[in-house]
Simulated scan of single mutants.
Amino acid sequence: MRSAAVRTAWSSMRTRRATWGRAMALRDLDRYLRRPDLAYDQTAAMGALVFIDLNLQGDQAARFLGPGALWQQWLHDAPHMQGTTDPTPSSLSLIRRLCAFVDECAESG
């Protein structure tokens, strides 16, 4: 079992990483959602951004997700996304599972 000091340090580190991750996701989404011809990790980045917003009580994803915003445009214009539903819920679920796995590994380590 972890001491209170270790749990506090782990929580602080997670918050710092999430803040950094949000900045990276914002930068990448702003750049690559303007390029529907590129199929990188836009869906994973959006799932991560939504996850971070939910955990840090932020609202950064909203600028991409609104009607007519970059996310909807990219889903419509990207040839590899044609005929698919919005992958945000499944991407968010994946990010949640990955974070839970990391937390579990950290707890047992």
Rank of each mutant, 00 (worst) to 15 (best):
R35F: 08
L54N: 09
L65C: 09
W20F: 10
R17N: 11
M13A: 15
M13E: 14
R7W: 06
W71M: 10
G68H: 11
F64N: 02
P89T: 04
S3F: 13
T43M: 09
P87Y: 04
G47V: 00
M24K: 14
I52Y: 00
R7C: 13
T15N: 13
C99Y: 12
L38P: 00
R7Q: 15
G21T: 04
T88N: 00
A18E: 10
W20V: 11
L38Q: 12
T19G: 07
D86Q: 05
Q60R: 12
A45Q: 02
Q72G: 11
P67W: 11
A69S: 07
A106N: 13
R34I: 06
C105W: 12
P79W: 03
L75Q: 13
R31D: 15
V6Q: 08
S11A: 03
R97P: 02
M13C: 12
R16E: 03
I95G: 01
F64M: 06
M81Q: 14
A5C: 08
T84G: 05
S108E: 14
A78Q: 04
L29N: 01
R31G: 11
R2N: 09
M46E: 08
V6M: 04
Q42R: 05
S108M: 13
D59R: 08
T88E: 01
A69P: 05
L92C: 02
S93G: 14
S11E: 02
A106G: 11
D77A: 02
D41V: 04
A39M: 08
A23Q: 13
L56A: 08
Y40D: 10
R2L: 05
Q57Y: 02
L98K: 14
V50L: 14
S90Y: 08
V102G: 00
A78C: 11
A106T: 05
L49Y: 00
R34S: 10
C105I: 06
G58C: 06
V50G: 02
P87D: 12
V6E: 14
S12F: 04
S11R: 01
H76C: 09
W10I: 00
L70D: 05
A44E: 13
M46A: 12
G58H: 05
F101W: 13
R14D: 01
L75A: 05
A4V: 03
T84M: 10
S108T: 07
R63T: 09
H76V: 05
L98A: 15
G58N: 05
L75N: 03
Q82M: 07
S12E: 14
A23L: 14
A48N: 10
R34K: 12
A4H: 05
L98Q: 14
A69R: 08
S11N: 12
C105H: 10
G83T: 06
